[in-house]
Amino acid sequence: MVGEGIEINKRRKTVMEKISYTFLLFLTLIVIAFVMGIIIYLIVKGSSAINWEFLSQKPRSGMREGGIFPAILGTLYLVIGTLIFSLPIGILAAIYLNEYASKNRLTRIIRLSIINMSGVPSVVYGLFGLGFFVILLKFGRSILAGSLTLALLILPAIITTTEEALKTVPDSYRHASLALGATKWQTITKVILPQALPGIITGSVIGIGRAAGETAPIIFTVAAFSQPNLPNSIFSQVMALPYHLYVLATQLTGTPEDMQWGTALVLLMIVLIFAVSGTAVRTRFRLRKKE
């Protein structure tokens, strides 16, 4: 009797296992299908526009011909500028929160602010950037103002992922280091940060993706509709791929469709290149640790 009951139960469980497994697999495949779909669609529609001229020349004939080089360059400048501001602040903030701060009212407020910051719509960051960096601090519409605005935008992501990475470093390493007479800062720089680096890189890659793709904040703070000369200082305006794409698609008539798709493809490729090199650094780092 009892044995039979167990048998039936087991059979029912196996069926349930299979159903839930299939269901989960199906959901995962949907995600992959969408990603692949977007990429393939972009490649099909946009690859015909991509050639050396498209990548290396300025737009001509009211942007209906020529290339998108200034926008590529502008986006690269913005990504680098954003990282220069957001990485040090984000990493140091995460170190403070995870390694130094005690659990009190202040840290609760800080954490709450970070959560809220990641919930603020990007257009609001844009408006803030315009009011604060562009007008109040007199940076003008510039790479500096745009990078600072984007840095604020991705700061929560950098802080959160870095903090998560720091949390995964076991306390036994901290104790071992401190017991050898290391100061807290030595422990952080020599033991904890190297361990947390892969996670920090992941956070940076996510941040880069957002910074490169955001449109609203840069419209307010840096992006130029069209620019005859390439930027020559951090106080220059730049063209940027997302805004250029918007301009091509909605602000002009008669732009060839493949130029629009080509621009989108280039934007995606830039983000992908950053992501892949981030992953490569991470993997190399893991291998080196394993050796």
């Binding site: 036994s172 390493y173 071992a176 401190l178 050898l180 007479g181 290391a182 050796e291």
Partner: peptide, 29 residues
Amino acid sequence: LRKRIGMVFQRPNPFPKTIYENVIYGPRL
């Protein structure tokens, strides 16, 4: 103080570094 008083923990806790780096970690601090 902790330089003068070493500690061995319940679970071995070498750093995820090479053997060489583990030993020189303390002196180099």
